[in-house]
Nucleic acid binder design. Structure first.
Length: 832
RNA sequence: GCCCCAGUAGCCCAAUGGCAGAGGCAGCAGACUUAAAAUCUGUUCAGUGUCGGUUCGAGUCCGACCUGGGGUACCA
């Protein structure tokens, strides 16, 4: 080859990613280089990717997420930190069960086969994980401790059972937590969710609402703002008051004190009717006999609505009169009590005071049923009774007895004082967050370790009898959804003596939401084989909170909220000494194709293994990371894995062109290239602090280009600075392209592994330049550039700037009002 | 409706309030080649969504709006 650029003509100088991928995994395995030392000599860093669900082989989304997490882990290692970067599987869940039904098999077969496939793919993908800590949540040795933790929650009253209308997925035949209902449909399968009244297990996450909110202060700045915002909205703190209305006794029916929650106690005088949630027990309790039939048929109608229909905001208001009247605690006014479905049974108290003038929903209802509308806050807008538009803004109270004349805020305070003085109300805080419904009527999950005894009630399975394992003899149709757990049909499993009294009793047949399993796995990684406790508290306190958590934003209010809740409970139990599990969170973007998420129905899926076969692991990884900032989506149609491969080959070829020996003294090398190398190191340090992985790669490309130029130009291949630059390329490249970097490192004459050699220190003296280009502006516009010494004084710089010919021309003799000097880089002259 | 995020070159994206361009893709030209691919070299292309404000100076800060994306939604 006649080009001077070292392009590959000999076989030894042709970049062959297949050869690299065939060679290095065995070397890395034998070195065991990715397990932490944990000897306290180095700063510990826990880097964690959200563990995968074994749904099949890895896909493009995994490839992006794990590339990002691996960059963070490898960076920490190069910085000399003791890195924990484990991997495991979230291996309970419905898809395994559905697959088992289809194939007349046990869910474990499908699950563990997929885990093996994914594990092989992860190894090929070059993830720098500590494989010795591998866990699976469906292993009895894991779920034993999920059960143990459930029992600690149960002991504290944080796990309880109650009857309640719950979200029901008719397809999956199981209940769903609030967080798992997306736009009225099942998060998993998209089926319209309906309501069903069932007795179910809950975790009392509402007890922690305030702490979940307040502790976000610890996360602000290191978690994406939008995730914090989503959690804040989900928790939905709302300040207001409880105000008790008395429902008057009527013939045989007794009087009834009905509290309502309101954020607007100032509008109490405007309450012209009262509404109870139609599906709340209270509605049936207070309805007069002659209205009972109408209410019951209305309740039937409401029940038949899907969540989607119910949530539609355009739906006209419906409801029925109960025949009863409530007394306003401030005015004593008697107002009708209605039952309607626009009031929710499980928010607030399940009943409201309706103030149609100042709440649009109440106004819509009032207009539908011809009820009184009374304006009590004058906002200057048109009277809502006429306009049909409720007014919610600031204003002056009118028609409101003692409150009249006050501002909204004054009236809110005074109204609360007044009802409090009467004993009919108090200031309160209400949350949108509901308790976490954790029981599921399916098989492939952690059994709830409770035994139901007719005399002793709910009895905890004693700790020493854990785990309560799943029966192994169920296959195919045995697992089909029937609305009750398949476990209920296994008599020999269900029927056990009561641990307390010995009488015949039955096991609870529900299993736990898989989000329970994933709420504590990051703790289990610390001591994955411990069999005396879920985790080693001392070691956990050493390693946690997780220093960098990486995963998709789809878990913003599911897994992340639940895990935060778990951590706080464990803190209260004295099992951990921190209250937030994840100190920093990185949400990687999605991988799109043609502007859209990849999906079977669109037919725009890109197969990961095909990309890997074609371009190589390193090129795919580099493409993922280089395409955009980590949190932005990557559109596979917009990127170029072949371009990435080209760059990798360029970098790799440097290995053949460095002719100095390992250990050559860089001080003897060309200063200009050394400056580029050390400037790169210094900048990368700052960029990595801000997760700007894509920019780091751009800087790495520059360094490769500069090294190439030095080799082909005057500096020459034998210059020690060239070796230094190529070695820095290898170390930085190891963050993104482990195979290429490792091979380059070897070609540079070093033994494996480049992953752990560390970064050379930045030589500060190489960063300072003798002269810089100073910008001369007139009124903010650049008019000249002058070479000046870096240490020029402000006065000298100003003098040079004033003397500039082009500046003189622009100023044209005008007087100067002000001169801003930022030596040595800038002078701005402002004329009058 | 409310809340968050983002709008810079044909495309993906850089730019501590101080020269709008670091890097890549695509394009164009050249070198090498019988030719092509690969490789190498060089190079074209925007004034930063709109309007206003703060400032000596705004892509960057503030306000309003537009567009796109995401979240949430009878939550009293």
């Amino acid at each position: 080859m006649s080009t001077p650029s070292g392009s590959g003509q000999s076989d030894e100088n042709i970049y062959d990613f297949r050869a690299l991928e065939a060679r290095w995994p065995a070397v890395w395995d034998s070195m065991d280089s990715f397990a932490p030392i944990d000897d306290g000599n180095r700063e510990r860093k826990y880097v964690l990717d959200m563990f995968p669900y074994p749904s099949g082989d890895l896909h493009m989304g995994h490839a992006e997420a794990f590339a990002m997490g691996d960059v963070a882990a490898r960076w920490a290692r190069q910085k000399g930190q003791d890195v924990l970067h484990p991997i495991g599987w979230d291996s309970f869940g419905l898809p395994a069960e559905n697959a088992a039904i289809q194939r007349n098999a046990h869910p474990a077969e499908w699950t563990y086969a997929n885990i093996d496939t994914q594990a092989r793919s992860f190894k090929r993908y070059g993830i720098s994980a500590d494989w010795s800590r591998r866990i699976h949540t469906s292993d009895p040795s894991y779920y034993r401790w999920t059960q143990w933790l459930f029992l600690r929650f149960f002991d504290k009253g944080l796990a309880y059972r109650r009857d309640s209308p719950v979200n029901w997925c008719p397809k999956d035949q199981t209940v769903l937590a609030n967080e798992q209902v997306v736009n009225g449909t099942c998060e998993r399968c998209g089926t319209d969710v309906t309501k069903k009244s069932l007795n179910q297990w809950y975790f009392k996450i509402t007890d922690y609402a305030d702490r979940l909110l307040e502790d976000m202060d610890q996360l602000s700045g290191s978690w994406p703002e939008r995730v914090l915002a989503m959690q804040r909205n989900w928790i939905g703190r709302s300040e207001g008051a409880h105000v008790t209305f008395t429902i008057e006794a009527d013939s045989d029916l007794p009087a009834y004190d009905a509290p309502v929650f309101t954020t607007r106690p100032d509008t109490l005088y405007g309450a012209t009717f009262f509404v109870v949630a139609a599906d709340a027990p209270l509605a049936l309790e207070l309805v007069k006999p002659e209205h009972r039939a109408a209410l019951e048929s209305y309740r039937e109608k409401v029940k038949s609505l899907s969540e989607i229909e119910r949530q539609s905001t355009e739906r006209p208001k419906t409801g029925v009169f109960t025949g009863r009247y409530a007394l306003n605690p401030l005015s004593g006014e008697k107002i009708p009590v209605w039952a309607a479905d626009y009031v929710l049974a499980d928010y607030g108290t399940g009943a409201i005071m309706a103030v149609p003038a100042h709440d649009q929903r109440d106004l819509d209802f009032a207009r539908a049923f011809d009820l009184t509308v009374r304006t009590v806050v004058d906002t200057g807008a048109e009277d809502p009774a006429m306009s049909g538009v409720a007014t919610t803004g600031e204003g002056t109270l009118v028609n409101s007895g003692e409150l009249s004349g006050l501002s909204k805020d004054e009236a809110i305070a005074k109204a609360i004082d007044m009802v409090a003085a009467h004993g009919t109300g108090e200031r309160t805080v209400n949350y949108r967050l509901r308790d976490w419904l954790i029981s599921r009527q399916r098989f492939w999950g952690t059994p709830i370790p409770i035994i139901h005894c007719t005399t002793c009630g709910e009895v905890a399975v004693p700790d020493d009898q854990l785990p309560v394992t799943l029966p192994e003899n169920l296959r195919g149709e045995d697992l089909a959804p029937k609305g009750t757990s398949p476990l209920a049909a296994v008599a020999e499993w269900v029927n056990v003596p009561c641990p307390t009294c010995g009488a015949p009793a039955q096991r609870d047949t529900d299993t736990m939401d898989t989000f329970v399993d994933s709420s504590w796995y990051y703790l289990r990684f610390i001591s994955p084989t411990l069999d005396s406790a879920p985790f080693d508290t001392e070691a956990v306190n050493r390693w946690l909170p997780v220093g960098q958590y990486v995963g998709g934003v789809e878990h913003a209010i599911l897994h992340l909220l639940y895990s935060r809740f778990f951590t706080k409970v464990l803190f209260d139990l004295g099992l951990v000494n921190f209250t937030e599990p994840f100190a920093a969170l990185l949400n990687q973007g999605q991988v799109l194709n043609g502007g859209k998420a990849m999906s079977k129905s669109l037919g725009n899926g890109v197969d990961l293994s095909e990309q890997l076969d074609r371009f190589g692991v390193d090129a795919v990884r580099l493409t993922m990371v280089f395409a955009s900032p980590p949190e932005d989506d990557v559109d596979w149609a917009d990127v170029s894995p072949s371009g990435a491969a080209k760059f990798l080959a360029r970098a790799w070829r440097l290995g053949a062109d460095v002719t100095s020996d390992p250990g050559a003294d860089p001080d003897a090398g060309a200063g200009q290239l050394r400056s580029v190398t050390h400037r790169t190191l210094a900048d990368v340090e700052v960029l990595m602090q801000h997760n700007k992985f894509n920019v780091v790669i751009a800087r790495l490309m520059e360094l490769v280009n500069a090294t190439r130029k030095a080799i082909d130009g005057d500096v020459g291949a034998a210059d020690p600075a060239v070796r230094e630059a190529a070695e820095v390329v290898a170390v930085l490249l190891s963050l993104f392209a482990p195979y290429t970097a490792e091979d380059l490192w070897e070609r540079l004459g070093h033994p494996a592994s480049v992953a752990t050699v560390g970064l050379p220190p930045v030589e500060q003296r190489l960063l300072v330049q003798d002269t810089v280009v100073a910008i001369v502006q007139v009124q903010g516009k650049v008019r000249d550039r002058i070479d000046v010494p870096v240490d020029i004084s402000a006065a000298d710089l100003e003098a040079l700037a004033r003397a500039s010919g082009s500046v003189q021309r622009i100023l044209d003799g005008r007087d100067i009002r002000q001169v801003i000097v930022r030596a040595p880089k800038l002078v701005n002259i402002v004329p009058c």
